[in-house]
């Protein structure tokens, strides 16, 4: 089983407090040439967005100091950035997906997820 990425060199910000999930995302995306930056909470995620340019944001909803949707709101309303955002969540309920979509999420992915499918989605969104 191999992971193959068709796209190279995108700057991706992953905001996830779960170290294993964040590490798996890093391991999946980095070999394809993507530059991955990891933030663990809302405040460090917002700081990272302010500090540099990113081509894609991968966002967990439940973070230690608040909701990942706050970062999404910050990105869309305060920074006025239109970069694609993949929201990750352990919740399958439609209302979570609806809220994320209304705030401007490009994709809503429920955990657990397939690393290969996620990589394909990242390639598509950054292509």
């Amino acid at each position: 089983m191999r992971l193959e990425s068709k796209k190279a060199m995108s700057a991706i910000l992953v905001v996830d407090d779960d170290p294993i999930s964040a590490r798996l995302l890093e391991l999946t995306l980095t070999p394809g040439g993507h530059q991955v930056e990891v933030a663990r909470d809302v405040s460090s995620g917002q700081r990272a967005l302010l500090a540099g340019h990113h081509d894609l944001l991968i966002l967990d909803i439940f973070l230690p100091d608040g909701s990942g949707l706050e970062i999404l709101r910050f990105l869309r309303e305060d920074l006025k950035q239109a970069i694609p955002v993949i929201v990750l969540s352990g919740h399958r309920q439609e209302d979570f997906a609806d809220r994320a979509t209304k705030l401007g999420a490009t994709q809503y992915v429920t955990k657990p997820f397939s690393l290969r499918d996620l990589l394909a989605e990242v390639d598509r969104l950054t292509g």
Binding site: M1, I20, L24, K111, P112, F113, S114, L115, R116, D117
Partner: peptide
């Protein structure tokens, strides 16, 4: 512990593998 944590986060063919 690491193996089980990874398994929990994988889905589809990767999870089964």
């Amino acid at each position: 512990a690491a193996a089980f944590e990874i398994r929990e986060r994988l889905k589809g063919s990767e999870g089964k593998e």
